[in-house]
Design a binder for these strands. Structure first.
Length: 463
DNA sequence: TAACTTTTTCT
DNA sequence: GAAAAAGTT
C-alpha cells in the first residue's frame, strides 16, 4: 500500500497538512502534480505566475527527491481529465489513499466532489485537509450563524481566534528513503515568462523573502506601506498565491523573529493583511457566485457599464493621461506586480471614472500579475467597484491626482515610470493636463466622470 | 483603505 | 481670510 500526496496549490514541504498526513505512517509515499494548462487558460492565469509555479515545482521535485519521495508530473488539459489520470497513476503505483489540501474556488470544489465518488468506486480514498488560511474557512460566523461579509467584525473575531489558537506548524517530513534523481519538468513553453526573473522560485527563496521583510522592513511597514516609491511591503504575495508559503508560517515567523507573544502595532498592521486574505478566501468559499464572474451585490449587475474599447486599451497600456494611473499600469506591465495602493487607485479609475465593467479589469490583472489569486483579486476589484462585500461606498471615489499628492508627494514613483513628464515640477507633475508633447491629455474628465458614476449608482437604488 | 462643498470658528 | 468642522455625495 502506497500513500499519495497530491500537490495543487501548496507547493511546499513545510506546514503542509496533507503531506504530514501522507507521511504519518510507515507506508511508501509518492507525490504527484497535474499541470492543467487548459484550465489555467480558462482561469486567466498569467504566464508570469505559471513561470514562478513551474520554477517552484522544479524546486519541490528536487526537495522531494532528496527525501526519497518521487514526484510524478502528469500533464492534463482540464480538471475534467483529473479522474482518468489519477486513477491510472493509482493503478500503476499501487496507491490506495490520496491526500490533498483543500481548494476553495468553485471549479476546484466541483472537481474534488466528483473525484471523491469516482475514486471511492475504485476503492481509493481521497482525504482533504484545510489549508490556505490561518483561520479555517467555516470557523467564524456572526451571531446569526451566517458568514461574515464585513471585514471589521470579521477581523475582531479573527484576532480572537488566532490568540486562542496559536498556529502549530506541520514540520517538513524526514527522509523516507535513498535520494532519487529529480523529476523532469514538462516544457509548457507557452506558460513560461522572462518578466519575472527578479523573483526566485521555491520554498527557500520564499522564506528568505519573508525573513528579510520581518527583520528589515516590518518595523516601518505601518508608516510606509502606502508610498509606492518606498520598498516597504513584504513582496511575498506571489509565494502565498502558489502555496509556496503558508499564511500560518507568516504568523509564526513574525512571533518568533520579533520575540513577541502578541504582535506590536507594526506587526499588527501587516498581519491584518493576512486577515484580509483569510476574509476574502472564506467569502469565496461561502459565496460560490464570486468564482463565477458575478457581483456579490446582485443589484449592481444592472449598472450600465460603458463599452470598453479604446479607454480600456489606454488603461492597460498606461496611456490615460493621469500620471499615477499610468505609472502604476506600467509597473504592472513591466514587473508583473503592482503596489497595493495603486491596485485600488487603478481599479477605481477604471470602474468609476471610465465606468468599465470591473470584470475586465479583474481579468487583465489576472493575466499580468505574478501574484494573481482569485480570492484577493476578485475581492479587491469588487471592493473598488462597490459591487462587493464590505465594498467602498459608491460615493467614495479616489481622485488619482489627490492620491498622487498624498502618496507620491515627491513624484519619485511617477518620474520613474512616466519619464516623458519627469521634468515637470510641482503640482504640474500630478496632472500635466495635456501640456506635454508625447504624453496624452486625460482621456476622461475626473470631475464629470466622478459625478456620472455617483448618479448611476444612485439610480440603482431607485430602480 | 475619500472627495468635495458648505458652514462655522478662529485669528 | 484662513482653517477647521460639518454636511453631502
Amino acid at each position: 500500500m502506497t500513500e499519495l500526496i497530491w500537490f495543487r496549490n501548496d507547493l511546499r514541504l513545510g506546514d503542509n497538512p496533507a503531506l504530514t498526513a501522507a507521511c504519518a505512517g510507515n507506508a511508501a509515499v509518492e507525490a504527484c502534480f497535474l499541470p492543467a494548462p487548459g484550465q489555467w487558460a480558462d482561469h486567466d492565469w498569467s504566464p508570469n505566475r505559471t513561470d514562478l509555479l513551474l520554477r517552484s515545482l522544479d524546486q519541490l521535485g528536487q526537495d522531494l527527491a532528496a527525501l526519497g519521495i518521487p514526484l510524478h508530473i502528469r500533464s492534463i488539459d482540464r480538471f475534467t481529465d483529473t479522474d482518468t489520470e489519477l486513477l491510472a497513476l493509482c493503478r500503476e503505483r499501487g496507491i490506495t489513499r490520496i491526500h490533498a489540501n483543500e481548494e476553495y474556488a468553485f471549479n476546484e470544489r466541483i472537481r474534488d466532489h466528483r473525484l471523491t465518488g469516482a475514486l471511492n468506486h475504485q476503492g481509493i480514498a481521497l482525504h482533504i485537509y484545510r489549508d490556505q488560511t490561518v483561520v479555517p474557512v467555516d470557523q467564524l460566523k456572526t451571531g446569526n450563524g451566517t458568514p461574515y461579509t464585513v471585514f471589521t467584525p470579521y477581523s475582531r473575531q479573527w484576532w480572537r481566534w488566532v490568540e486562542s489558537h496559536p498556529p502549530r506548524l506541520h514540520p517538513a517530513p524526514a527522509a523516507r528513503g535513498a535520494p532519487l534523481p529529480p523529476p523532469a519538468l514538462p516544457e509548457l513553453t507557452a506558460w513560461r515568462s522572462e518578466h519575472v526573473d527578479w523573483l526566485a522560485g521555491g520554498e527557500g527563496a520564499a522564506h528568505r523573502a519573508l525573513e528579510g521583510f520581518i527583520d528589515q522592513r516590518l518595523g516601518a511597514y505601518a508608516d510606509q506601506r502606502n508610498y509606492p516609491a518606498v520598498p516597504a511591503t513584504s513582496q511575498i504575495s506571489p509565494y502565498l498565491a502558489l502555496g509556496v508559503l503558508s499564511p500560518r508560517q507568516c504568523l509564526v515567523a513574525v512571533q518568533q523573529r520579533t520575540g513577541a507573544e502578541s504582535p506590536a502595532s507594526a506587526a499588527h498592521t501587516w498581519l491584518n493583511e493576512i486577515a484580509w486574505r483569510d476574509f476574502y478566501i472564506q467569502l469565496l468559499y461561502q459565496f460560490p457566485r464570486l468564482s463565477r464572474h458575478q457581483a456579490f451585490k446582485p443589484e449592481t449587475e444592472a449598472l450600465p457599464w460603458e463599452p470598453a474599447g479604446a479607454n480600456l486599451e489606454a488603461w492597460k497600456a498606461g496611456r490615460t493621461g493621469i500620471p499615477l494611473v499610468d505609472a502604476a499600469m506600467r509597473q504592472l506591465n513591466t514587473t508583473c506586480w503592482m503596489h497595493n495602493r495603486l491596485r485600488m487607485v487603478t481599479a477605481m479609475f477604471l470602474t468609476k471614472n471610465l465606468f468599465v465593467d470591473w470584470r475586465l479589469g479583474e481579468q487583465y490583472f489576472m493575466q499580468q500579475l505574478v501574484d494573481g489569486y482569485l480570492p484577493s483579486n476578485n475581492g479587491g476589484w469588487q471592493w473598488s467597484a462597490s459591487t462587493g462585500t464590505d465594498a467602498a461606498p459608491y460615493f467614495r471615489i479616489f481622485n488619482p491626482v489627490t492620491q498622487s499628492e498624498r502618496f507620491d508627494p515627491e513624484g519619485t514613483f511617477i518620474r520613474h515610470w512616466v519619464p516623458e513628464i519627469a521634468h515637470l515640477q510641482g503640482k504640474k507633475l500630478f496632472n500635466p493636463n495635456g501640456t506635454v508633447a508625447g504624453y496624452p491629455a486625460p482621456i476622461v474628465d475626473l470631475k464629470q466622470s466622478r459625478q456620472r458614476a455617483i448618479e448611476r449608482f444612485k439610480a440603482l437604488g431607485k430602480g
